[in-house]
C-alpha cells in the first residue's frame, strides 16, 4: 500500500528535523511536511531531514494544513495517509500498524487514542477535562471516541475524499470525525502511547482553550449530518 505521512507544522523548527528522521527510520512511507506559514526555519529543516515540503504562503490553520496534505495525497495517488504532529508527541512506531489496519480494510479512519491504554503522556488535567467533555458530546451526537482531539490519524482514500473538499480549519479533529462519520466512514480507535512535546509551543494557549471548547461544541451541534 502506497502510504504518505503528513505533518502539519507551524514554527516547529527545533523539533521537526528529528520528527521527520524518526518517521523515516520507522517506516518506508514518503513524508511531507505542510509548513503553515512558519516564520522560522521549519520548512528548511524538514527539507534537510528528507521530507517534501508544501509551504502555505500565509498561516491558514492546522485543519487547512491537513487538508492540503489530503489534496496532495489524492493528487499523487497515495492509498493511505497517516498524520503526525510536528512536535514529536506522536510515536511513529505505530505507523506500520495503522497502515496494516487500513490495508486490511478494517476501517476508513484509524485514530490513535492516548486514553484507551492509559499509558504515556496523558496531557494536563484541564485539557483532559476538556477532552472528556468533547468525548461525551461527540458520543451524544453520534461518534463514539475516547480521544476526539487526537491528531494521530490514519485515513484511506475514501476518508480523504470525504474530508478533502470541506475540512474544518481550527481545532479540526473532533469536527472532522463527525463529518467523516456523516459521510459513512468507519472509524476505529487504537491505543497509542503519546509523548510530551519535544520542543516549541503548543498552538493552543490557555487563552484559546475557552475559544477552542466553544468553537468545537458549536461545530458539533451545527455541523450538517
Amino acid at each position: 500500500m502506497r502510504c504518505l505521512v503528513i505533518i502539519p507544522a507551524l514554527n516547529e523548527a527545533e523539533a521537526i528535523g528529528d520528527v521527520v528522521r524518526d518517521i523515516r527510520a520507522s517506516c518506508d512511507a514518503d513524508v511531507v511536511v505542510i509548513d503553515d506559514g512558519s516564520s522560522d526555519a521549519t520548512g528548511a529543516n524538514a527539507s534537510a531531514a528528507g521530507a517534501d515540503v508544501l509551504r502555505h504562503p500565509c498561516n491558514l490553520g492546522i485543519g487547512a494544513a491537513v487538508q492540503t496534505g489530503y489534496l496532495y495525497a489524492l493528487e499523487q495517488g497515495y492509498e493511505c495517509v497517516v498524520r503526525q504532529d510536528g512536535d514529536g508527541q506522536h510515536d511513529p512506531a505505530y505507523i506500520p500498524q495503522f497502515v496494516e489496519l487500513l490495508a486490511n480494510d478494517e476501517a476508513d479512519i484509524i485514530v490513535g487514542s492516548r486514553f484507551l491504554a492509559r499509558e504515556g503522556y496523558q496531557s494536563t488535567i484541564v485539557r483532559r477535562l476538556g477532552i472528556l467533555i468533547l468525548s461525551i458530546i461527540s458520543t451524544l451526537v453520534g461518534t463514539r471516541t475516547t480521544d476526539p482531539t487526537s491528531g494521530y490519524w490514519g485515513v484511506n482514500r475514501r476518508a480523504m475524499e470525504t474530508l478533502a473538499p470541506e475540512h474544518p480549519d481550527d481545532y479540526p479533529e473532533t469536527e472532522a470525525l463527525l463529518i467523516a462519520a456523516a459521510g459513512g466512514c468507519r472509524i476505529r480507535e487504537v491505543p497509542t502511547v503519546m509523548r510530551e512535546r519535544a520542543a516549541g509551543q503548543s498552538s493552543i494557549s490557555v487563552l484559546y482553550s475557552g475559544f477552542y471548547m466553544v468553537k468545537v461544541i458549536l461545530a458539533l451541534l451545527l455541523v450538517k449530518r
Binding site: D52, L54, R55, H56, P57, L60, A64, Q67, L71
Partner: peptide
C-alpha cells in the same frame, strides 16, 4: 485558503 493551498501544491 483555497488559493494558498493551490499555491503550495503548485510551488512544490
Amino acid at each position: 485558503r483555497r488559493l494558498s493551498q493551490s499555491v503550495a501544491l503548485l510551488e512544490h
